[in-house]
C-alpha cells in the first residue's frame, strides 16, 4: 500500500507539471494573439502566464537548484513544452537561400543541403528557429552553420551571401486567382572567410 501512495504522489506531481506547462503555453498563445477571444483577454493571459511561469520556477535565478531540478525533470520526461502544434494559426515559415560567388564572377544559388527527405522536417524546424529568434547574434551563428556546410560542398567559392525570408502563403481564393507563395526579405548575411564575422543587411 505504501508503494501505491508513492506512485500516486509521483503521478500527481507529474500530471501537475504537464498541465501547468500546457496551461502556460496556451495562455502565451492567447497573450500573443491573434485568437478568437476578445482583446481584453490578453492582459489577463499575460498575467496568468507570468504567474504560471513563476510556479514552474522560471522566475528564480538560473543558479537556483530547485529551478534546475525542475528544469531537468521536465526535459528528461519530455514535458517541457505544451501541445499547441499548428495552433492557434499555422505560421508561414521561413526560407533561406545561399548566393555563391565564385572568383571568376559566376553566381550560383543553393538551398540548405540535406541528403534525405526525412531531414527536410528538421531543417524546416532549424529555419523556423533562425527566423523566430529575437537575438541577432544567435541568428547569425545559426545561418553561418548552414553556410559552412554549403561551403564544404563548394570549396572554390569566394564568398557566400545567405538570404533569409519569411514565406507568405496565398489563401485558397488567392491561389485560384493565380497568386503563389512569396518570400518577404528579412535579412542577408555576407560571409567572406570562414571565421570572419558576417556583414549583416536587414529589411
Amino acid at each position: 500500500m505504501r508503494q501505491k501512495y508513492a506512485y500516486l504522489a509521483w503521478l500527481t506531481l507529474h500530471l501537475l507539471l504537464i498541465v501547468l506547462v500546457s496551461c502556460r503555453d496556451t495562455l502565451r498563445v492567447v497573450a500573443e494573439g491573434p485568437t478568437i477571444l476578445p482583446v481584453s483577454f490578453k492582459n489577463f493571459s499575460q498575467k496568468a502566464e507570468t504567474a504560471l511561469s513563476a510556479a514552474l520556477g522560471r522566475k528564480l535565478p538560473a543558479s537556483n537548484s530547485a529551478r534546475e531540478a525542475l528544469a531537468t525533470y521536465v526535459q528528461v520526461a519530455g514535458v517541457e513544452a505544451g501541445y499547441g502544434y499548428f495552433a492557434p494559426n499555422v505560421p508561414g515559415g521561413y526560407g533561406l537561400i545561399f548566393e555563391l560567388h565564385y572568383p571568376e564572377g559566376r553566381v550560383e544559388y543553393e538551398l540548405p543541403l540535406v541528403s534525405s527527405p526525412a531531414a527536410a522536417l528538421p531543417i524546416a524546424g532549424f529555419l523556423d528557429s533562425i527566423g523566430r529568434t529575437p537575438h541577432d547574434a544567435l541568428r547569425e551563428i545559426l545561418v553561418k552553420t548552414l553556410a559552412q556546410s554549403v561551403w564544404r560542398e563548394h570549396p572554390d567559392v569566394e564568398s557566400v551571401r545567405a538570404i533569409l525570408g519569411s514565406i507568405r502563403l496565398p489563401t485558397a481564393r488567392e491561389f485560384t486567382e493565380g497568386k503563389r507563395e512569396s518570400y518577404e526579405f528579412l535579412y542577408a548575411y555576407d560571409f567572406n572567410l570562414e571565421n570572419a564575422p558576417a556583414k549583416r543587411n536587414h529589411h
Binding site: T26, T35, I36, L37, Y83, G84, A87, N89
Partner: peptide
C-alpha cells in the same frame, strides 16, 4: 490542449 489551442484560432 492541442484541440483547445486550435479552436482559439479563427483559421481552424
Amino acid at each position: 490542449f492541442s484541440g483547445l489551442t486550435k479552436c482559439l484560432g479563427s483559421g481552424w
